[in-house]
């Protein structure tokens, strides 16, 4: 294929939709990472591992329930909850004792978790890849301007805004969300007005990790579930959080949009080099806004 050889309005439209479905996954994962980074100040490298576990768990649960539509829905609900449970145990058992440590320690600590989780996945699921099929009514494609668009991606396009809305509600309308926003800036003062910050941190950590698990479960039907998907996503998620502004939920959305759309447009423009487009976008953003597009809580 040659450079920019097959660009039509229809193809652009199709790739925008593809990019937006990718955005959904990226946003869900990155917003969870951003939440934990913004409120707890933990750069959780193991976030990608939880995403991978979410995908494997979704596969196992769906298979356990016969692989049908019901299995898929159950997997979509139970897998992220399972990931949330794992993160809850990790938080109460280990992380909660480390909040006062410096960031480098936390980074190394969560990195060690990626190794542990990576081996655990290998132990439980072996090193073969798995695949999970979407429920029948979401399989196949329908055509937009005579170009195919997978039905499952349409489902993702619905989920993305729902999650964004849910997160907006959580951070702006609920008490725990307001406390979390206050703690992101001044945790000491939050404690001084009688709030048990440690409990709030646990809840925020679990919610953030739940989002990693949800991202993993949602992505499962669209790709092979393999070892190594943790590394791929964590790099992207960190870049998204960085260009969006650390700890800023809408920044994560903006970053995910930039990442998802440049990726899909790159495929259209120059397929062989599509992979570099998002990274070029990141560099451009950071050249002009080194602190990210939106206000960081750091």
């Amino acid at each position: 294929m040659e450079f920019a050889s097959n660009i039509t309005i229809a193809a652009i439209f199709q790739q925008v939709l593809v990019g937006l479905s990718r955005t959904t996954i990226l946003f869900i994962v990155a917003s969870g990472l951003s939440l934990v980074l913004g409120v707890l100040r933990i750069p959780n490298v193991a976030h990608g591992s939880l995403y991978m576990i979410g995908a494997f768990l979704a596969y196992t649960i769906a298979t356990l329930f016969g692989g049908g539509t019901a299995g898929f829905w159950l997997a979509l609900i139970i897998a992220p909850l399972g990931v949330a449970l794992i993160s809850f145990i990790a938080e109460r058992g280990l992380f909660c004792h480390l909040y006062e440590r410096e960031h480098l320690m936390l980074l190394l600590f969560t990195f060690s978790f990626t190794l542990v989780f990576g081996d655990l996945v290998k132990l439980v699921w072996g090193s073969d890849y798995r695949s999970l099929s979407a429920p029948v009514f979401m399989q196949g494609s329908f055509s937009i301007f005579d170009l195919p668009f997978p039905r499952y991606n349409l489902f993702l396009l619905v989920i993305g805004p729902l999650v964004a809305l849910g997160l907006w509600f959580l951070t702006n309308k609920t008490k725990i969300g307001k406390i979390a926003r206050a703690a992101a800036v001044d945790r000491e003062m939050v404690g001084a007005v009688g709030i048990n910050v440690s409990r709030v941190f646990a809840a925020v950590f679990v919610i953030g990790c739940f989002l990693a698990g949800l991202g993993g479960a949602l992505v499962a039907p669209t790709q092979n579930i393999t070892q190594g998907m943790d590394h791929a996503i964590i790099i992207e998620a960190f870049l998204i959080v960085i260009i969006g502004g650390l700890g800023n939920m809408w920044g994560a959305l903006l970053g995910a949009l930039i990442f998802g759309l440049t990726d899909s447009m790159g495929i259209l423009l120059w397929p062989q080099f599509a992979i570099v487009f998002p990274y070029i976008a990141v560099i451009i953003v950071l050249l002009f806004r080194p602190k990210g597009l939106l206000k960081s809580t750091w």
Partner: peptide, 23 residues
């Protein structure tokens, strides 16, 4: 812990006014 003291009725007004600026 400060939060327990606060619950027992100790109120703290810090120097240089640390309001929760985002709220």
């Amino acid at each position: 812990k400060p939060y327990l003291l606060a619950r027992q009725g100790m109120g703290y007004v810090p120097d240089n006014r640390r309001v929760f600026a985002d709220l």
